[in-house]
C-alpha cells in the first residue's frame, strides 16, 4: 500500500472551522476588551489558515485495493467503466 501522506495538520478541518465560528460569536458579543479581541482575531485567522492549508493539500485520487499473490494489498488507480450497468455479485 502506498505510503500515506503525512497528516495535514493537527486537528480536523471542522475543528478549525468551529473555532472560527466560536471566535466570531465571542467578538460579536462585545464582551471582550480590545487586547482580548486582537488575540481572538489572531487565533481565528490562524485557524482559517489551517482550513485553507487542508483544502490546498487535498487532491483527487481514486484507487482500488487489490490483493497481490502474497495476499498483500496494493492500490491501483480506478476508473469507472461507463458501459457496465448491472450489479455484479
Amino acid at each position: 500500500m502506498k505510503k500515506e501522506k503525512s497528516e495535514v495538520s493537527a486537528g480536523k478541518f471542522e475543528d478549525h472551522l468551529a473555532r472560527v465560528e466560536k471566535i466570531m460569536e465571542e467578538l460579536e458579543s462585545g464582551n471582550l476588551d480590545l487586547e482580548e479581541s486582537i488575540g481572538k482575531y489572531e487565533t481565528g485567522i490562524s485557524s482559517l489558515k489551517k482550513c485553507y492549508e487542508i483544502l490546498g493539500q487535498m487532491e483527487k485520487r481514486i484507487e482500488i485495493l487489490i490483493k497481490d499473490e502474497n495476499g498483500n494489498f496494493v492500490t491501483k488507480p480506478f476508473k469507472v467503466k461507463k458501459t457496465q450497468e448491472t450489479e455484479q455479485s
Partner: peptide
Amino acid sequence: DRRWAEVSILIYPVRVQ
C-alpha cells in the same frame, strides 16, 4: 465528484450478494 472532487477514495472491491 460533483460536490468535492479533490478527495482521496480507496475502493475495497467485494461481492455484495
